[in-house]
Amino acid sequence: MLELKDISKTFKKKGTGLSVQAAKHVSLNIPEQSIVGLVGESGCGKSTLSRMVVGLEKADSGTIALKGKNIDYRNPRDLSHLRKSVQIVFQDPNTTFNPRRTLLASLEEGLVNKGMGKTDRLKKVRDLTDIIGISYANLEKYPHQFSGGQKQRLSIARALLMEPELLVLDEPVSSLDVSVQAQIINLLMDLRKEFGLTYLFISHDLHLVGYVSTLIAVMKSGEIVEQGDAEQILFEPKHSYTKQLFASSPIIH
């Protein structure tokens, strides 16, 4: 589906002359219909990587190939192709919607840009909100009138309206309580079956990543230190950092 090869990215810190290498020769393969879990501690470069995957940030070097075709960031057609096939859901559901617009207006927006007619748009939004479990009538409300979990459902709906094949989930449940987290995770698993989606699932929670993913990549200061089959990483981790993460993550036996 998507293949990252030898991606590097460096940020310069203004004024100090120091720089952070947020990605160091990262290679990652996301096969069709898989769930690739990306796990690592804060600041290790997970979000930077996800922004490069959806074309919000440009890599310094390396290539990103979508279905075998290299994406050239300077080519607008490539970029729009990437943006059409890949959508992203962010961590904080409170900042993803414009507080002054109704949810309906926010959800419709992407479809308007696609040039879809009014009746088609509304039908599409209605079908999808049924699936994610928010009543269509509620869409006349504004973001602050929804709970965090509901907003996260709605941001997933917004991403799905664009009919992506790959969904990048950057810590989609980190700001939610366990019970709500469970609702969202279950929803994501159902949606995947229904639409045949591929996920890049980012989290700092090793157990959560382990629970949902088919493949796992462990990241540390811009580098992927270990990647492979989920079972293998979970039950026979090789790299010392992966082992350390396991040892630190609290777990109920």
Binding site: S147, V178, S179, I185, N186, H207, Y211, I252
Partner: peptide
């Protein structure tokens, strides 16, 4: 019980998590 069932446990991969409806 639901709170405990909602915690992801890698030995139960692939099964749905226990969740509480509503807020």
């Amino acid at each position: 019980r639901v709170l405990l069932g909602a915690v992801p446990d890698i030995s139960r991969r692939g099964q749905p998590l226990l969740s509480i409806k509503g807020n």
